[in-house]
Amino acid sequence: MGVARDLGPRDITANVVEAGLMEGGMEGPDPETLKALVSSLSLQRMGHPEEIAAAIAFLASPAASYVTGAVLDAHGGYNA
Protein backbone atom coordinates (compact mmCIF):
# COMPACT_ATOMS: atom_id res chain seq x y z
CA MET A 1 0.00 0.00 0.00
CA GLY A 2 1.71 3.16 -1.22
CA VAL A 3 0.10 5.43 1.36
CA ALA A 4 1.58 3.39 4.22
CA ARG A 5 5.04 3.59 2.65
CA ASP A 6 4.71 7.33 2.03
CA LEU A 7 3.43 8.19 5.51
CA GLY A 8 5.46 5.67 7.52
CA PRO A 9 8.49 7.96 7.93
CA ARG A 10 6.17 10.46 9.64
CA ASP A 11 4.99 7.73 12.05
CA ILE A 12 1.52 7.64 10.45
CA THR A 13 -0.10 4.27 9.83
CA ALA A 14 -2.51 3.52 6.99
CA ASN A 15 -4.73 0.45 6.95
CA VAL A 16 -7.97 -0.82 5.44
CA VAL A 17 -10.91 -2.53 7.14
CA GLU A 18 -12.73 -4.75 4.66
CA ALA A 19 -16.25 -4.96 6.03
CA GLY A 20 -18.60 -7.69 4.92
CA LEU A 21 -22.33 -8.13 4.84
CA MET A 22 -23.80 -5.85 7.54
CA GLU A 23 -27.11 -5.48 9.27
CA GLY A 24 -28.34 -1.94 9.05
CA GLY A 25 -31.05 0.42 7.94
CA MET A 26 -30.68 -0.18 4.22
CA GLU A 27 -33.00 -2.47 2.33
CA GLY A 28 -31.32 -5.79 1.68
CA PRO A 29 -31.59 -8.15 -1.25
CA ASP A 30 -34.50 -10.52 -1.69
CA PRO A 31 -34.72 -13.27 0.97
CA GLU A 32 -33.34 -16.05 -1.24
CA THR A 33 -30.29 -14.00 -2.25
CA LEU A 34 -29.71 -12.97 1.36
CA LYS A 35 -29.91 -16.60 2.48
CA ALA A 36 -27.33 -17.61 -0.14
CA LEU A 37 -25.00 -14.77 0.85
CA VAL A 38 -25.19 -15.55 4.57
CA SER A 39 -24.68 -19.27 3.96
CA SER A 40 -21.38 -18.47 2.21
CA LEU A 41 -19.99 -16.95 5.43
CA SER A 42 -18.09 -19.04 7.97
CA LEU A 43 -19.99 -17.37 10.83
CA GLN A 44 -23.36 -17.90 9.10
CA ARG A 45 -24.64 -14.45 10.09
CA MET A 46 -24.50 -10.84 9.06
CA GLY A 47 -22.17 -8.50 10.88
CA HIS A 48 -23.06 -5.61 13.14
CA PRO A 49 -21.74 -2.06 12.71
CA GLU A 50 -20.32 -2.21 16.25
CA GLU A 51 -18.06 -5.06 15.14
CA ILE A 52 -16.58 -2.97 12.36
CA ALA A 53 -16.22 -0.04 14.74
CA ALA A 54 -14.24 -2.31 17.10
CA ALA A 55 -11.84 -3.23 14.28
CA ILE A 56 -11.35 0.44 13.44
CA ALA A 57 -10.86 1.30 17.12
CA PHE A 58 -8.15 -1.36 17.35
CA LEU A 59 -6.31 0.05 14.33
CA ALA A 60 -6.54 3.55 15.80
CA SER A 61 -5.24 2.40 19.19
CA PRO A 62 -1.67 2.21 20.48
CA ALA A 63 -1.98 -1.59 20.35
CA ALA A 64 -1.76 -1.35 16.54
CA SER A 65 1.15 1.09 16.44
CA TYR A 66 3.25 -1.32 14.34
CA VAL A 67 0.42 -2.29 11.97
CA THR A 68 0.52 -0.46 8.65
CA GLY A 69 -0.24 -1.31 5.06
CA ALA A 70 -2.61 -4.03 6.25
CA VAL A 71 -6.08 -5.12 5.21
CA LEU A 72 -8.14 -6.31 8.17
CA ASP A 73 -10.84 -8.67 6.89
CA ALA A 74 -13.93 -8.22 9.04
CA HIS A 75 -16.36 -10.14 6.87
CA GLY A 76 -17.48 -13.15 8.85
CA GLY A 77 -15.18 -15.55 7.05
CA TYR A 78 -16.22 -14.81 3.47
CA ASN A 79 -12.82 -15.89 2.13
CA ALA A 80 -12.34 -18.82 4.53
Rank of each mutant, 00 (worst) to 15 (best):
A63N: 13
E50Q: 09
H48V: 03
H75Y: 11
V17F: 07
K35P: 02
L37E: 13
P31L: 07
E32Y: 01
N15A: 09
E50L: 06
A53W: 00
V17R: 07
G28M: 09
M46C: 04
A55V: 06
A14S: 13
G69K: 15
V38P: 02
D30F: 02
P49I: 10
R45V: 04
H48G: 01
E18H: 12
E32D: 14
A36W: 07
A54D: 11
V38I: 14
L34V: 02
T13N: 04
A19M: 12
G28C: 05
L41V: 03
V67R: 01
G25R: 14
K35R: 15
S65H: 05
A60V: 09
L72Q: 12
D11M: 10
L21R: 01
M46H: 04
V71C: 15
Y66S: 04
A19F: 05
H48N: 06
L59W: 06
L37A: 11
G28Y: 02
L43E: 07
E51S: 01
G24K: 12
M46K: 11
K35F: 03
A70Y: 10
E32S: 10
E23H: 07
L72R: 11
Q44D: 12
E51L: 02
L21F: 07
A19G: 12
A57R: 01
P49D: 14
L34K: 05
Y66P: 04
